[in-house]
C-alpha cells in the first residue's frame, strides 16, 4: 500500500493509531492526537508514550502487545499493539480497557463484599446455636432468651440482605427496558407513608393533586420506602420526616424526602449509592441496615430515566431527591 493510502486509512479509524519510523512519530490520527496531545507528530515516540512497558514494546524488533496504564488519566488501562509494516515503519494502536477492567473488578468486589456481609451474621448464628446446644448454657432460661434473641435478629438480617440482593439483581435484569405503566406518585407516596403507621410522623405535601409518571409501581414504591426508612432510622429520634412533591411545569417531577437528623459528612456523600458503603458502619448494622438501600434506589431511578441525589448539612438533616420525567399526557 502506498504511504498516502496508509495514512488516509488510519485517519478513518476511530481508535488512536500512530505510525512510527526510526523512533519518530510520522503520523497520528485524530483520536491519537486527542489522546496524546497535538504536539506528538515529529517527536520521538517516547514523548508520546513514555510508560516503560510501552517503550519496551516499541523497541522490540518484532512488535507485539502490552498493557499500559495511565495514558489518558491516572489509573486508566490501555491495550497497546505494535505491528511492524513492510518497509520497517511501525503501526501503534491503543485500546481503552479501563471499563472492562473496572467492571471485572467491581464484580469481584461485589461478590467479595456480599459474601462478607452474609458470613458475618451466619457466623453469629452458628456460634450461638452451638452455645445453646451446650446443656449448661441452654438450660438457663435468661441466657437462652438472650441468645435466641440474637439468633433471631441475625437471621432477620440475613433474610433482608438476601431480599435486597434479589431486588438488586431483578432491577439489574430489566434495567434496559424503560417501564411505561402510568403511576401516580402523589397517591403512591401517601400509600408508602401510610405503611409506616400512625406512630411515626411522615408528612406528605404536594403542589399537584396527582403526578403521573411512566413507571414500575412496585419498584417506585420500594424506592420511596427505602428513602423514608432511612430518614426514620437516621433522623432525630421522634423527629419529623417530610415527603414533598413538586410537579412543576418543566415536565419533571421532584420528590424529596427530608429528615432533621444529624446529617451526613460531605466526604461520604459521593459514595452513598455504592453497594455496601456505609457512612457509619456500626450504626447501620445495629439498625439492621444491609448497605444496599440507596444502591437499590439509584438503580430503580436510573431505570426510570430519572436522577437521584442526596444533599446534607451536618447538624441540620439530610434531603434525598428523586427527579423523574412526567408522563407526556400530564402536560
Amino acid at each position: 500500500m502506498a504511504e498516502a493510502d496508509q495514512t488516509r486509512l488510519l485517519a478513518l479509524i476511530e481508535m488512536p493509531a500512530l505510525l512510527v519510523e526510526a523512533d519518530k512519530v510520522t503520523f497520528a490520527n485524530r483520536a491519537a492526537l486527542a489522546l496524546l496531545g497535538a504536539h506528538i507528530v515529529g517527536e520521538n515516540v517516547r514523548i508520546a508514550l513514555r510508560a516503560p512497558d510501552a517503550v519496551a514494546l516499541i523497541m522490540r524488533p518484532d512488535g507485539g502487545h502490552a498493557r499500559i496504564t495511565g495514558v489518558s488519566v491516572p489509573g486508566s488501562i490501555w491495550e497497546m499493539a505494535c505491528h511492524v509494516l513492510d518497509g520497517g515503519a511501525r503501526l501503534v494502536t491503543l485500546q481503552d480497557m479501563s471499563i472492562q477492567v473496572s467492571v471485572a473488578r467491581a464484580h469481584a468486589d461485589f461478590v467479595a463484599n456480599a459474601s462478607h456481609e452474609l458470613r458475618t451474621p451466619l457466623a453469629a448464628i452458628i456460634g450461638y446455636v452451638e452455645t445453646l446446644s451446650d446443656e449448661k448454657a441452654g438450660e438457663d432460661r435468661q441466657t437462652r432468651e438472650r441468645f435466641l434473641g440474637i439468633i433471631r435478629r441475625e437471621a432477620r438480617r440475613v433474610q433482608s440482605l438476601v431480599e435486597d440482593l434479589m431486588s438488586l439483581s431483578r432491577i439489574e435484569a430489566v434495567k434496559h427496558e424503560a417501564p411505561t405503566d402510568p403511576v401516580d406518585i402523589v397517591a403512591l407516596a401517601r400509600e408508602v407513608a401510610g405503611e409506616f403507621g400512625e406512630t411515626s410522623s411522615v408528612e406528605v405535601t404536594s403542589d399537584a393533586a396527582q403526578a403521573i409518571v411512566g413507571g414500575d409501581r412496585s419498584q417506585l414504591a420500594q424506592a420511596i420506602r427505602n428513602l423514608v426508612d432511612n430518614a426514620l432510622k437516621y433522623g432525630r429520634p421522634g423527629g419529623k420526616v417530610a415527603i414533598s412533591i413538586e410537579a412543576s411545569a418543566t415536565g419533571w417531577l421532584l420528590l424529596q424526602v427530608t429528615d432533621d437528623g444529624e446529617g451526613i459528612a460531605p466526604e461520604h456523600l459521593p459514595r452513598l449509592t455504592e453497594r455496601f458503603y456505609r457512612a457509619d458502619a456500626s450504626r447501620s448494622r445495629s439498625l439492621g441496615g444491609t448497605g444496599l438501600g440507596l444502591a437499590i434506589v439509584k438503580h430503580i431511578i436510573e431505570r426510570h430515566r430519572g436522577r437521584f441525589d442526596v444533599s446534607s448539612r451536618l447538624g441540620q438533616g439530610t434531603t434525598a431527591s428523586i427527579t423523574l420525567p412526567l408522563s407526556g399526557d400530564q402536560l
Binding site: D23, K24, G42, E43, N44, V45, R46, I47, R50, A54
Partner: peptide, 12 residues
C-alpha cells in the same frame, strides 16, 4: 528528538 525521548523515558 533522541535526547527528548530519553528524558521522557526517564520520566516514565
Amino acid at each position: 528528538g533522541q535526547l527528548r525521548g530519553l528524558i521522557a523515558e526517564m520520566g516514565g
